[in-house]
Structures are given as structure tokens and as C-alpha cells.
């Protein structure tokens, strides 16, 4: 019982680690890949990640957020997928 309480207390005050951030980014990457594949082709041909640099993708995804009516979270997920896939 003491161990459970200690673990709960520690997790309450735990700061995010690199592992947490990496896992969250991985989730966003997967989510972004799905959204990229399903959303873009409703209007136009699919543009592959390697076509543009990280900064260009930032401008493009925020432009497309306006055009297609994405939420901020969906836009960020797609941006992470595109930036992590363009090397």
C-alpha cells in the first residue's frame, strides 16, 4: 500500500522527461500521417513531405488550416509528420 501511495505521489510531481516528449511526438506523428493521407486528397493531389523544408511546411500547414478548416491540434499533428518525414 505504501509503495502505491509513494508511486502516486511521485507521479503527481514528476516533470515530463525526454521519453514522455518523444512518446507524445510519436503519437502526433502517427495521427498526423493519418490526417495528411485522408484530408489533403479531398481537394488536391497529395504533396509528399520531401517537397518542402521544415519552415516551408510550417507556412503551408497553417495556410491549409485556414483553407480546409482544420483544428489547431490537427494542424500541429500534420506538421510534425511532414517535418519528421522530409529528410
Amino acid at each position: 500500500m505504501k509503495i502505491v501511495l509513494m508511486t502516486l505521489l511521485m507521479s503527481m510531481f514528476a516533470v515530463p522527461t525526454f521519453a514522455d516528449e518523444s512518446q507524445e511526438r510519436q503519437q502526433q506523428f502517427v495521427s498526423g500521417a493519418k490526417k495528411w493521407a485522408t484530408n489533403c486528397t479531398r481537394c488536391h493531389n497529395l504533396r509528399v513531405a520531401t517537397e518542402f523544408s521544415d519552415n516551408q511546411w510550417r507556412a503551408i500547414t497553417f495556410h491549409m488550416r485556414l483553407r480546409a478548416g482544420f483544428t489547431g491540434q490537427d494542424t500541429r499533428d500534420m506538421l510534425i509528420f511532414l517535418q519528421d518525414s522530409n529528410n
Binding site: 490526417k35 488550416r65 485556414l66 480546409a68 478548416g69 482544420f70 483544428t71 490537427d74
Partner: peptide, 12 residues
């Protein structure tokens, strides 16, 4: 005013 309310609803 435009945007997405969810992943499946957008508005303008």
C-alpha cells in the same frame, strides 16, 4: 471567422 470545431466539423 472560420476554423475546425473538431476533426470532422469545419465552419466559416
Amino acid at each position: 471567422l472560420r476554423g475546425g470545431l473538431t476533426s470532422s466539423i469545419n465552419y466559416a
